[in-house]
Each structure stands twice: as structure tokens, then as C-alpha cells.
Write a protein that binds this DNA or RNA. Sequence first.
DNA 1: ATTGCAATAGCCCAATCAGGTCATTTTTCA
DNA 2: TGAAAAATGACCTGATTGGGCTATTGCAAT
Lengths: 209, 209
Amino acid sequence: MTITIGLVEDHLEFRKSLEYLISSFTDYTVAWSYASVEETIDNYSETDVILLDINLPGLSGLEAIPLFKKKCASQKIIMLTILEDDYHILEAIKNGANGYILKKSSPNKILEAIQQVYDGEAALTPMVARQVMAFLKPVPAQTASPSLLTLREREILTLIAHGMTNEAIAVTLFISVQTVRNHIKNIYDKLQVHSRAQVVVKAFNDKLI
Amino acid sequence: MTITIGLVEDHLEFRKSLEYLISSFTDYTVAWSYASVEETIDNYSETDVILLDINLPGLSGLEAIPLFKKKCASQKIIMLTILEDDYHILEAIKNGANGYILKKSSPNKILEAIQQVYDGEAALTPMVARQVMAFLKPVPAQTASPSLLTLREREILTLIAHGMTNEAIAVTLFISVQTVRNHIKNIYDKLQVHSRAQVVVKAFNDKLI
DNA sequence: ATTGCAATAGCCCAATCAGGTCATTTTTCA
DNA sequence: TGAAAAATGACCTGATTGGGCTATTGCAAT
């Protein structure tokens, strides 16, 4: 059972060396390789993974992601690019890329990324991971609104708003369901509501979430 | 120049095997290792990287992150845990962790993560990367578009999001509770949720309200 | 030292909800 | 006109929630 790979890369030399690299392993096969998105779409067939450059003549790799996903919803795509600014990284992720690795990665890392994405996981080079994490980290939070909820209560409120049941919340926070219940009762009292649906509405309206 | 490492891990056996693993490389040194956050804080000294468990007696690893960062703002921290739900992952990142890897990772991957974080990059195991990326990816706007809900369903969705019970909705719309139930079941199917709390969240996120 | 609050945990009971299956009527539209 | 979709209604069962209690622990401030 070999993993099939599609390549979209306009730099001929790099593309050839990728093909050479991949073909040197019996577990991996290059199903096709093209120099542009347009060309690829015309001749597209599903592969286990597509390695997709971003900076391409015509349509960019970012614009190509939804096109491939439309052709085949489960198509796995790894961005393989020199671009490591957070704009391109985030756009790729938002568009549904399954991995984002840099061309300067070692051949080994590229193969590893393919394997990971093939396995249903995701592949980010450490540099990209750092930027993604920096993006998720909020600016030092200031509590302008002195909430009447305690820390724990707000924590639980967040989990409720994620649609979790009391049981799930208990497991997540390592406390008993009874305790979760009690916190929720207190939240209801303070916010003057009587159901989780209401509490979610209030959380959104009061921007507690 | 060796990389110094601190360990916070309550499972003695696992901690010892980590120490053994790390010490077997001349480039890495275990500067200290403790079984709890409290113990660590009392005896803290800066290391290049801290490997930090989450589920610990007393203070959790998540709560420990800001404490370490306060002691030393540049302290690098890698979460090393069995927990792979997005709540813990995102909380860790929000709190400022520099890496998040799973205990089931191979020794090789753990060492690699240490090196990456030491180099000022970040380390996410592929499974964690997948969840982080999923979090950044907006809900497919066309899949969850209001148009897949019928008029009546959207009407009922709105009332749910106002915190009404099925009974109240039935009275409001002059229909039976059974019918309300049926509509809600269809809404759940279409939006792929399983509770009113979730449906309210979805309604807000998809700007249906 | 005592008071107060937060967090933890338990019990009971009734109300509500979620999921499954089925059936009838009306509307839409190809 | 006939098929498909939408809206209506029902039954049953088990899971979950909401509300009313009590109680212990730890911490912080008075």
C-alpha cells in the first residue's frame, strides 16, 4: 500500500528533486505533478496528499485549496512554501490546509509531514507552529468588567458554551459532576437564568466569551 | 554547551524514565525534577526548557505556566501530557506554553521538541497541530448556512436562542410540543449538534441571530 | 478568632430534553 | 398531476438537567 502524492510547484528544478526524493521510497508514489493550479485542476485526480506551493503563476496555492477540496472533500493538502509570515500561514489554515511546511525543511521532515497528514494528523514545522501559537495567545487580558462570576464559574461557563454536558465538564476539570452542578446553579442565580441555552445567550451578549 | 531541563511530573516511574532518557545524551542535562508544581516553585531555578505535566496533585500544569513565566519571563515550557482535548491544548497555548506534546510520543520526538523549543521555535505533535488548526479554521460557511434550515426551523432556532423551552416555543407558535421536538431534531441533524446549548453557540457563530 | 467566600461533594425529586419510530396533511415544484 | 419536501402530531425510553437541601475544606480579610 503506497501513499500517492500530487505536486503543484512551478520551480521545475525543485519539483524534479521532490519527485526524485519521493520516488526513492517504495512507500511513496508521485501520481502527478504540475507547474500551476490551472493545469492541475484540469487534470486533477485524487491523491493521498498534495504538496502545494503558494507563490505560483496565475492562481495562488491558497486559492487552490478550496478548489481541490471541492473536487474531493477529503483531499489532504500540505502547503510547501518559502513563505513563513503569519498572513500566509493563517490563510492556509483557514482555507483548510492540513499541513504547512517550509521548503528549507529537510527531505526527512517533508516525508514525515506527508506521513502525518496521511494518518489524519497535521504537520506544522516548528517555526510555523510558533507563529500559530503566538496568534492564539491573547494579549495580556485585562478584566475591565469586574465580573460577578468567580474564575471557576467563568471557566465552567466557557465549557457550557462549547456545548459540553456536566459530565464532560467534570471530566475536563477533574472535579465531580456534583460540583459542576453547584457551580452552574450559582451561575444561574447570578445571571438570573434557568437553562444552559439562556446562559450561553447571556455569555455571548455580555461578551463573556 | 548542554541544554538544561526541568521536569514536573507526578508519575514517579515515568519521571525516572524521562530522566534516564535525557541523561543518556551528553547534550541534555536534567537540572531538577519534582512531582508537583508547589514543590517546583519553592525550589525553582531557570532551565532552558521545562517539561510540564498537566494533571498534577494540587496546582495543575496549566496554572503553573504563568507562575514560571513570572519567575522568569523567558522560561520555555513544553506541556508533556496524556490530555489531547482541545480545551487543555488551547488553555496551555493561551497561558504561554511553547510546546505541547503527548506522553505517547517517541523518546526521539520528545528530544526533538526540546531542541525545537530551545531554538526559539515551537513543538506540537501532529495530533495537537491538527486540533489547533481545526480551531483556527472557521466553520464552513456554506455547510452551516441558514439556507439548509427551513423557515420554520430557523424560527424555532431563534426561540431556542432566546432561552425558551419546548413548551414555551409551542405556545408561542401555536403548535404542539411534539412538533417543536421534531423540528429541533431536524435542526440537530442538519447542524450536527446534540443539545440546545450547542445549537445556540452555532447560531451565534454563524450569525444566524 | 471569626466571619465570609470559593471550591469541593453529596442526596433527592421533578422537569426537561434527546433519540428513535411512525403517520397525516399541506405546500411546492418539476 | 404526482413526487418530494415541509410542517404537523404522537408514543416511548432513557439521559440530562434544574432546584432544593446540607456539608467540609481552605483561604483571606476583619
